[in-house]
Design a binder for these strands. Sequence first.
RNA 1: GGCCCCAUCGUCUAGCGGUCCAGGACGUCGCCCUUUCACGGCGAAAACACGGGUUCGAUUCCCGUUGGGGUCACCA
Length: 444
Amino acid sequence: MSVVTRFAPAPTGRLHVGNIRTAVHNWLWARKNGGRFILRLDDTDKERSSEANAEGIKEDLAWLGLDWDEEHRQSLRFERYEAAFERLRAAGRVYPTYETAQELDLKRKVQLSRGRPPVYDRAALRLSDSERARLEADARTPHWRFRLDHDSPIEWDDLVRGRQIFDPALLSDPVVRREDGSWLYMLPSSVDDIEMGVTHVLRGEDHVANTALQLQMFEALGAASPAFAHEALLVGSEGKLSKRLGSLGADALREQGIEPIALVAKLARLGTSLPVEPLAEPRILIETFDFATFGRAPARFDLDELAQLNSRIVHLLPFEAVAARLPEGMGADDWAAIRPNLKTVAEASDWWAILHGHVESEAAEEDRSLIRAAAEALDEIDWSEAPWPQLVSRLKERTGRAGKALFRPLRLALTGRESGPEMAALLPLIGRGEAIARLRAAAA
RNA sequence: GGCCCCAUCGUCUAGCGGUCCAGGACGUCGCCCUUUCACGGCGAAAACACGGGUUCGAUUCCCGUUGGGGUCACCA
């Protein structure tokens, strides 16, 4: 059996870390098995969905390198849901209810205050024909609920949580259709999973109860159910589920210089027993993906850890992989010299500007003579052969300086910065004339 | 409040009754390399939430406490 997974975001915003993690895992599982990865835009909620967000999500996925094999939109499939709805209605599995949102809200509050779970009381099921007629005459249009079968427990073997058992009596009959005829998530999702041949539903554990409901829908619709895997959610580094995490979008991360592969590598392994490692491409991630490695406790997502992984990955990236994002004229040698000191690829431009642009610095009083000596020495050495060591040994000889006292002022005068890539690699890139000019200016 | 998950180094975790004075990864610290910072290499410190059981023996099994997460929408 070939594997089919799906990522089904509602186009109500850009992708964020929580979203991306389940997208990554679904993609990994499909790719590992040579299966299909479906992008399904769950846009049944017209109010909150937008075309701009749908495009944003696709852009985010493309940036992440998560390629999808099929794309669907629920808003284009309403007739399928209608057909399924009619079948359920004919089978008596769906029934009209007339409470207003306020009434339902009140019922819930009363139940809660009595220490009872706020489960829908099925009052609509006990309506007599005359009562129903009166409600309709009252111009009350119904919304529709799926009638759960209370007779036996709902069970499944979750790929990450193990055996799950739910008592359907503790669950509310889910509303599947609004008064205005529009659809809610529950039924369309089940219909799509059936019709698109989804074999594995991998999603956050906030969906476990939904799975219990949907299992009965699959059955009522006469379809076999897919396998389910519910992964623990991510929490912020403070331990609490942070709002910041929910709003930490792929677009924002991208602007911060996070490489897509860094995000993918981090999210693929966070919360698993596999180590988070700096990888330049996802092959290893695909090969090692395994539900058995998933922990069942919420894992913390730490932005600083991501940033650190990101720089380690940047140090690994070959020139060809980043060439398009490098400043005009920057070559493989320049990249090799600068790369080990970068946190983000964008910083390469800063160093390029330092190497070839204008650098201004003023040496401290006590360093002036050293800098002047350096300018003189540069004139004398053989530039074609590793100029930096030559410069250093001459200066050491003439000034008696060594170590930090020697390097710091030189680096400062030559690059305007206190830290950076190896000077031995930088000096040839700056060039003799420019180096001498900078030293003289700094000592002036 | 009901129901469901979870509880090992700072973080992600291995551990499925003795092999654990608890293993790995990230981070931290130290050393080495580099006549500087960084990069890189090597090494070290660092944890079984608490209380009861069960057992010859509990990190491992059971119960409870505490703590964390989820869910109970005419959102997805």
